[in-house]
């Protein structure tokens, strides 16, 4: 067991010693700052509702929205939701909470896409680079099975994804606290569900959002890892995985009508589609079905990597 820790330590050292890894973190950091800046500048931060007259403000806003609906068809389609939300605040006598750092952290769950991208880059290179550098030959002539090497590389990749997620989370919180203040320790937000609006804990919402994002991160990373092991080409692994991650949902959009569409990986990646009040992308999808499909894909990806990596000759380029 301690041998495996040492192997993972080796792999992590090789990831974090390189400048390109730190550039990734710098980019992520810059995007978080830019996001905070734009949110501060252009978003509605609930500042209007913070006075004692927040009820009047909400009622006033509803009246304005009603008027707008009479004139504009587009407004007529989207405004009722906002009115319903405002009414929920009024009926339950909940004062809308000010925008705080936890709101910012939750919104930054979309940046998990970027974390996935960075983890895919690491996964795509972790095997292929050893072949490119030629160091694979020195790596595989140690008293360690190839399975052990492969496992350490896979775990190091997942750990990179985990650390980067934690980096995103903590950095967002600190940057958010600087820009918007810490706010309540356990704020509540009003959210639409199948049974109308309810008030939910924002912290719980935050972790749920990040949790949903971990599914595509792990699946696409494992796909990139497999391509890296099979083709020993990092550009190919990174390219294919990122292309599929970005384009996956579009394909499903086109193919949603087909009977077999639900068997495609990308139809099953977003588990939030089964949350309250949402309709799945493809007919016939259920949470249980998606989890089964994800498990099958996951096992296939790992089995492919393992079979190819442990059995194949390591010959010259």
């Amino acid at each position: 067991m301690s041998r495996l820790f040492k192997l993972i330590q080796n792999e992590q050292a090789k990831i974090y010693i390189r400048k390109s890894t730190w550039i990734m973190y710098i980019i992520l950091f810059a995007i978080i700052i830019a996001g905070a800046f734009l949110t501060d500048k252009f978003s509605d931060l609930n500042e209007d509702y913070q006075g004692d007259d927040w009820r009047e403000v909400l009622q006033e806003e509803n009246k304005d929205l009603q008027k707008e609906m009479e004139k504009d068809e587009y407004a007529a389609s989207i405004n009722p939701e906002t009115i319903a939300k405002n009414n929920y605040y009024l009926e339950n006598d909940i004062q809308p909470a000010p925008y705080g750092t936890w709101n910012f952290v939750t919104e930054n769950a979309v940046l998990m896409m970027l974390v996935s991208l960075l983890t895919i880059i690491v996964a795509g290179g972790i095997i292929a680079n050893e072949f490119r550098w030629g160091s694979i030959k020195l790596l595989l002539i140690r008293p360690i099975s190839r399975s052990g090497i492969l496992l350490s590389k896979y775990l190091a990749t997942l750990l990179f994804g985990l650390y980067t997620t934690i980096f995103l989370f903590i950095t967002s919180w600190i940057v958010g606290a600087i820009f918007f203040g810490v706010g309540d320790m356990n704020p509540e937000i009003v959210k639409q569900t199948a049974n109308g609006f309810t008030s939910v804990s924002l912290l719980q919402e935050t972790f749920t959002q990040y949790g949903y994002q971990l599914v595509p991160l792990i699946m696409m990373t494992t796909l990139a890892f497999m391509i890296s092991a099979v083709f020993r080409n990092s550009s190919l692994a990174i390219g294919i995985s990122i292309f599929l991650m970005m384009g996956g949902n579009t394909f499903i959009g086109f193919l949603a009508e087909k009977e077999w569409a639900k068997y495609i990986l990308f139809a099953n990646l977003d588990l939030s589609q089964f949350a309250d009040g949402r309709t799945p992308m493809v007919n016939g999808l259920t949470l249980e079905f998606s989890i089964t499909m994800l498990a099958i894909y996951y096992v296939v990806f790992l089995a492919m990597s393992w079979i190819i990596f442990t059995k194949r000759d390591v010959a010259g380029q």
């Binding site: 040492k6 330590q9 090789k14 160091s135 030959k137 140690r142 008293p143």
Partner: peptide, 24 residues
């Protein structure tokens, strides 16, 4: 050494040795 002695160019000699030392 099989073919060329291909070590990790972005690490120092010592770091390379440390890397292999951890494997044995």
């Amino acid at each position: 050494i099989v073919e060329n002695p291909e070590m990790y160019p972005f690490m120092t000699g010592w770091q390379n040795l440390k890397h292999y030392a951890r494997m044995m």
